[in-house]
Design a protein around this nucleic acid. Structure first.
Lengths: 127, 127
DNA sequence: TAGATGATATCATAAAACGATATTAAGGAG
DNA sequence: CTCCTTAATATCGTTTTATGATATCATCTA
């Protein structure tokens, strides 16, 4: 979700935080965790992985806690936990909205008198 | 999610499809719908909106069904419905993984004998 | 001294987001 | 018909993220 940085995480970012929620670990360990937790569905290459770790350290979502040789261990911060929680909520809201649509729940807009979406002819299934 | 185009929709894209799932409509109507359905949480500007509509028409997620003056009405296609359904599933999987983590469910990796994630000291809450 | 291995770092390119601004069509007032 | 307003779409330019490929660097082993 470009432009408004980190307002709404990408899937990769979300899983990186999830990994560090579990326990402090290094980049490779996080990538391994993600692959296992998602059963292979999500797999981060090194570029994506370290780009995200760098960004997260910059903004204070994670913190380096140990360096052994080249291996850097990161722990999630309070700010990072908050971002993770916010992201869970965002995902839940998306799904909630989807379910509301399935039920064709009416919209609750400010005014309610919008010009258009008054539930018309019904979606042509033939397309 | 750049690079691998449209593999995993962005939030904006997801809601555009949701709008057209409801009924065929034009860009502005979709934007209005989104703002109402999300209670203002998601608001697309014209640039984002028409970029997405253009892209979606290119890849066949939507189809122009009517042009009245400058107003173009779009309908979702079968391909678009499939993409929407896939996205719902992706979101559900993300949340499922998050819930599994909360419960500290063990990972079910191919081998199970990964080097690291053996659930260690417990996440330091002090950070 | 190599060489293998584990881990991180960077480059270059593509995709997406989005504010700002421009363009265009239709309809109404005079 | 001409001018103005309004609704709707289109495009520019910049920022942010994603990612394959490749490079670097530390540690261990022989």
């Amino acid at each position: 979700m470009p432009k408004k940085a980190l307002d709404g995480l990408t899937e990769s970012m979300f899983y990186v935080l999830m990994a560090l929620m579990r326990q402090p670990m290094c980049g490779i360990e996080a990538a391994d965790f993600i692959q296992k937790r998602t059963e292979g569905r999500v797999a981060l290459g090194p570029a994506t992985l370290y780009t995200i770790l760098g960004k997260f350290e910059q903004v204070g979502y994670i913190q380096e806690t140990e360096v052994v040789g080249r291996k850097r261990t990161y722990a999630i911060t309070e700010l990072g936990r908050a971002a993770y929680a916010a992201e869970v909520e965002r995902l839940e809201r998306c799904l909630m909205d989807a379910r509301r649509e399935e039920r064709r729940e009416p919209l609750g807009g400010e005014d309610g008198g919008g010009a258009q979406t008054r539930l018309a002819p019904a979606p042509v299934p033939g397309l």
